[in-house]
Structures are given as C-alpha cells and as structure tokens.
Simulated assay, not measured.
Amino acid sequence: MPPVKKRTYTRLRAGFIAWLFMLPLVAINLLVILGPSIASVYYSLTDWDGLGAAKFIGLQNYQRMVGDSEFQQALLHNIIWTVIFLTVPIAMGLLGAFLLSQITRFQMFFRVVYFIPYMVASVVNASIWQDLLNPDRGLGGALAKIGIPFLKDIYFFGDQRYALGAVAFVDNWHFWGFLVVLFLAAMQAVDTTLYEAARIDGANRWQQFYNVTLPGIRPTLVFMVLMILIWSLVVFDYIFIITQGGPGGATEVVSTLLYKNAFSRNDAGYAAAMGLSMTFISAIVVGGYFYLRRKGWDI
C-alpha cells in the first residue's frame, strides 16, 4: 500500500475506533437530552395536564405568558437575583482571593474552610440557616436574651420585604467560597514579573490588583459571569427548599412557578413553554457572548 494511502487508512481507522468508543455516550445523550428537548418543544405548543393526551394549541401558551402577571413577577425576581449574584459574590470572591494570594502560611487551610459550604448539600445548608434566622430559636432570640433585640421578631423568610434577599444571602454564603478558590487559582497563574514591574513603577496594591490581577484573570472572570447569568435564570433549589416561592410570591422565580404549574396545577404544557422561554433567554446570553468574542471584544 502506498505511504499516502496507508496514512489515510490509519487516520480513518483511528477516527472510526474513536467514534466507536464514543457511540454509547452519544446514544445516552440523544436519549436523555435530545429526546426530552424535542418533547418539550412539542408539549409547549399543547394544552397538556402531564398525564393524558396533549391537545395542540400552537403558540397560545406563549401568548398567555406575555400577559401573565405572575410570570412577569417571577421573571423580575430572576433579574433581581441575577443582579445580586453578579455583584455581591463576585466582589467577595475577588476580595477573598486577593487577600489569600498575599499570604503563604495556612493558605490551604483557608481554601478548605471557604470551600466547605459549597460541598455541603443545599438541603443541609438551607436547614441550618432556617434555624439560625428563626426569630424565636435562632440568632435573633439568642441576641434578645442578652439585651440585643434588633433581630427579634424579624421573619426573614416569612416577610415579603426580606424573603428574597434572605434566600439570596443563604445561597451566596454557600457559593462565594467556590469563587474564592477559583479566582485564587487564576491569580496564581498570573506572571509574577508583572507585579514586580508594577511595584517598580510605584503602583500600590490596589493599582496592582486593578491593572495586573484583573486583566490576568479576565478569562476566568468572564466565564464565571456568563455561568452566573445562566445559573440565575434557572435558580431553584434554595428558593424551593426554604420558601417554595412564598410568602405571597415574594420569592417566586420562573423555575418554582414552572414546577407549580407542572406538578400542582396540572398545566404541564404551559410549564414547558416557560422552560423553553428561559432556555431561549439563556441562548441569547451565550450567543451574545460569542458574538462579542467574534467581533474582537477582549472577553
């Protein structure tokens, strides 16, 4: 066999073997991802209770969503949640990582301590904070007993004024340590000679952080911003565990509203339309990111 044909045959054979090994994974993905995705598109165009036959109604579910004040309120809460998590945990993560990068002793210990809440199951974290923020047997009651009553009788998860912020606080408590570890790893990959050059030029620590650290970790930072945008659109676990969207819809987000429509109100077709609408918004976010990259934005 000529050398060129032999190389081509070897390359094709290697590719065939690689795809042969990948075939089970591809089949599983088609079964558990592509199949349900196509089914969701179909059911979003139907009037379906989740059990019986589905009646095709076209785009009526989407038209209904446009005028649904409950959906609009839930989407507003998703936007508020997104703003919170694009600012507070990222700022805390950057600050924590920068402070840790300045020390050498016990750095691994602090990494583990910060990361532990992220490793604990969300049900456990939520239960802990439900007890801690209980106005009677939690921190408020304990402080009131020693003459500090400012948290007494404040129902953080039961008051419409505080509920969304309180649940976001609990979720942030478990999440920001993950960002600390991630940003710290990115900071340690920044070329140390850049810091030396900045110090020679008279830059203080803040100027070094702004002009050297942030540009050095920009790919990691941008990636996490993108992921937080997507995660905030589909947030579910902490809200559902702690408040189930209450009190009075004060913490209702699209995911919890979707769950109620699908499993409590037997309106699975409308729930499918809600889910696809959030998928569409997520696709716009991701598409916008890649569009900016393609246009030459340094992100």
Results as ranks from 00 to 15, higher is better:
K6R: 13
K6W: 07
T8A: 07
T8S: 04
T10G: 02
T10P: 00
A14L: 10
I17F: 02
A27Q: 12
N29P: 02
N29H: 01
L30Q: 13
G35Q: 14
G35D: 12
Y42G: 04
Y43F: 04
Y43D: 01
L45G: 05
T46V: 06
W48H: 03
A54Y: 03
I57W: 03
Q60T: 01
Q63Y: 04
V66H: 15
V66A: 15
D68M: 14
D68F: 15
S69E: 12
S69I: 10
Q72T: 13
L76W: 11
H77Y: 04
T87K: 15
V88I: 15
P89G: 13
I90G: 12
I90M: 15
A91I: 13
G93W: 01
L94D: 05
L94P: 04
L94A: 07
G96C: 06
L100A: 11
L100F: 09
S101I: 08
F106Y: 06
Q107R: 10
M108V: 04
R111A: 00
V112I: 14
V113T: 14
F115C: 04
F115N: 05
Y118Q: 00
Y118N: 06
Y118M: 05
Y118W: 10
A121L: 05
S122C: 03
V123N: 04
V124I: 09
S127G: 00
S127M: 00
D136V: 12
D136W: 10
G141M: 06
A144T: 10
I146H: 12
I146E: 13
F150D: 09
L151T: 11
D153M: 14
D153R: 14
I154E: 05
Y155Q: 15
Y155C: 08
Y155P: 05
G158H: 00
L164H: 10
G165V: 09
V167R: 00
D171M: 11
W173E: 03
F178I: 00
V180N: 07
V180G: 06
V181Y: 11
L182W: 01
L182F: 02
L184V: 08
T193V: 04
Y195F: 14
E196M: 00
I200A: 05
D201P: 10
N204W: 09
R205W: 10
Q208E: 11
F209W: 06
L214P: 01
L214K: 01
G216F: 02
P219F: 02
P219I: 00
L221A: 00
V222D: 03
F223S: 10
V225T: 14
M227G: 12
I230Y: 11
I230R: 14
L233N: 08
F236E: 13
F236R: 15
F236Y: 14
F236T: 13
I239A: 11
I239R: 09
I241Q: 04
I241L: 09
T243P: 07
V254W: 08
S255A: 15
L258A: 10
L258G: 07
K260V: 03
A262I: 03
A262C: 03
A262F: 06
R265W: 11
Y270D: 00
A271Q: 03
L276P: 05
S282K: 10
I284F: 15
V286G: 08
G287N: 13
Y289P: 10
F290D: 10
R294E: 14
G296E: 06
G296C: 12
D298R: 14
D298H: 12
